[in-house]
Amino acid sequence: MKRNNLKILAVIVLAASSLAFTLKPDRDAAAKEEIKELILTSYVNGAFNALDADAMRKGFHEDFAIYSPKGEAISKYPIKVWADGVAKRKANDYNPADVKNKWDHNFASIDVTGNAAQVKIELHNLGKHVYTDYLSLLKFESGWRIVAKVYHQH
Rank of each mutant, 00 (worst) to 15 (best):
A87R: 03
D111A: 09
H124L: 13
K2S: 13
R57A: 07
E122V: 10
K36S: 11
D84S: 02
L51K: 11
S18W: 11
F48H: 10
T132M: 11
W103Y: 05
R57P: 01
F64Y: 15
E34M: 02
K76H: 14
R57I: 04
P78G: 08
K80F: 12
L137Q: 09
D28W: 06
K70L: 11
K100M: 08
I79C: 02
L123A: 11
I8S: 07
I66Y: 11
A50D: 15
H105A: 02
A30F: 02
H124M: 14
L23W: 05
K58N: 12
A108R: 05
K120H: 14
A53T: 08
D54I: 08
L135F: 10
T132C: 07
F64E: 03
N49C: 07
V99K: 12
P78E: 08
N125T: 08
K7S: 05
A50W: 10
D54P: 05
D26S: 04
V112K: 00
H105T: 02
N106H: 13
Y43M: 10
G114E: 09
H152M: 09
K88H: 04
V86Q: 06
P69M: 12
H105R: 00
G59T: 05
K128R: 14
V44A: 08
S136E: 14
P69C: 06
W144N: 12
E62H: 13
K7R: 09
H152V: 13
I12A: 06
I146D: 04
L9E: 06
R89S: 13
R89K: 12
R145Q: 15
L123K: 01
W103K: 05
L9Y: 09
I39W: 04
P69G: 12
A10D: 04
V119G: 06
I12D: 01
K90H: 03
S17M: 07
V81C: 02
D133Y: 09
L40F: 04
Q153V: 12
N101M: 02
G85D: 09
G59D: 03
